Simulated scan of single mutants.
Amino acid sequence: MIPAPVSIGNSTERQRLRLSWQDGREQYIDHVLLRQQCPCSQCRAFRLRGMKPVVASSLCLIEINPQGYGLQLVFSDGHQRGIYPWAYLAGLGPESTA
């Protein structure tokens, strides 16, 4: 089990989520990627059929709700069904020290 990040940030200007992990890693994940990779059952079924959700490039993450083992994310298109576990988030975006 991956522990929660030490800090979580959100930039609506840059349209990305920032996760600072306990080992010092910084991770940035684009809002569009987060929405495309939503782990809710409806979105998973969509991807299993070989389809990708159509997501506007202007989409933003507007709310972050900690759920203990991950985050519930609310997007500007109204989607809010998925809870993103820490391990799932850790595997989504590139790491950076900047």
Results as ranks from 00 to 15, higher is better:
residue 2 I to A: 12
residue 3 P to K: 10
residue 5 P to Y: 11
residue 5 P to I: 10
residue 10 N to L: 11
residue 11 S to H: 10
residue 11 S to W: 03
residue 11 S to K: 05
residue 14 R to G: 08
residue 16 R to H: 14
residue 22 Q to C: 10
residue 24 G to Y: 13
residue 26 E to A: 11
residue 30 D to I: 04
residue 30 D to M: 12
residue 31 H to S: 03
residue 33 L to N: 06
residue 34 L to T: 05
residue 34 L to Y: 02
residue 34 L to K: 10
residue 35 R to P: 05
residue 36 Q to W: 01
residue 37 Q to A: 08
residue 39 P to N: 07
residue 39 P to A: 05
residue 41 S to D: 14
residue 41 S to A: 15
residue 41 S to Q: 13
residue 45 A to M: 05
residue 45 A to L: 12
residue 45 A to Y: 00
residue 46 F to A: 05
residue 47 R to G: 02
residue 47 R to Q: 11
residue 50 G to H: 06
residue 51 M to T: 03
residue 52 K to R: 15
residue 57 S to Q: 12
residue 58 S to I: 00
residue 60 C to K: 15
residue 60 C to A: 02
residue 61 L to A: 05
residue 62 I to Q: 13
residue 62 I to W: 03
residue 62 I to P: 00
residue 62 I to D: 13
residue 63 E to Q: 15
residue 64 I to H: 03
residue 65 N to M: 14
residue 66 P to R: 09
residue 67 Q to A: 14
residue 67 Q to N: 05
residue 67 Q to T: 09
residue 70 G to Y: 02
residue 70 G to N: 07
residue 71 L to E: 01
residue 71 L to D: 02
residue 73 L to P: 07
residue 74 V to I: 12
residue 77 D to S: 02
residue 79 H to T: 01
residue 80 Q to P: 01
residue 81 R to W: 00
residue 81 R to N: 13
residue 81 R to G: 09
residue 83 I to W: 03
residue 84 Y to D: 03
residue 85 P to A: 01
residue 86 W to P: 07
residue 88 Y to C: 01
residue 89 L to P: 04
residue 89 L to T: 05
residue 98 A to W: 09
